[in-house]
Simulated scan of single mutants.
Amino acid sequence: MHAQRDVVRSVDIQRGWQANMQVCGADQLWRQLRCEGADVARCMVERLMRKAGL
């Protein structure tokens, strides 16, 4: 279950990072995802960004 959620959130993070010209950090992406209605923790965004090498 967690792996499926991570895959979905990783796609959201990649999309958000690309939309912000690849210059935003975890805090900005976290706020953006929250505004879009995603129930995601900041630490999850940080972990998935690190895993993706962003």
Rank of each mutant, 00 (worst) to 15 (best):
M1V: 15
M1R: 14
H2D: 05
A3D: 04
Q4Y: 07
Q4I: 12
Q4E: 11
R5G: 08
R5E: 14
V7C: 11
V8N: 04
V8W: 04
S10H: 02
D12E: 09
D12R: 07
I13K: 04
R15P: 02
W17M: 02
Q18P: 03
Q18K: 06
A19R: 01
N20H: 05
N20L: 05
Q22S: 14
V23L: 01
G25P: 01
G25R: 00
G25F: 00
A26K: 04
D27L: 05
Q28C: 10
Q28K: 14
L29Y: 05
L29I: 07
L29T: 05
R31H: 05
Q32R: 11
L33A: 09
L33G: 06
R34M: 03
R34D: 03
C35L: 09
C35A: 10
E36G: 13
G37Y: 06
A38T: 11
V40C: 05
V40E: 05
C43G: 09
M44H: 06
M44L: 09
V45P: 00
V45Q: 00
R47Y: 12
L48T: 01
L48R: 03
M49W: 00
M49D: 00
R50M: 12
R50W: 12
K51F: 10
K51R: 14
A52K: 10
A52N: 12
G53H: 15
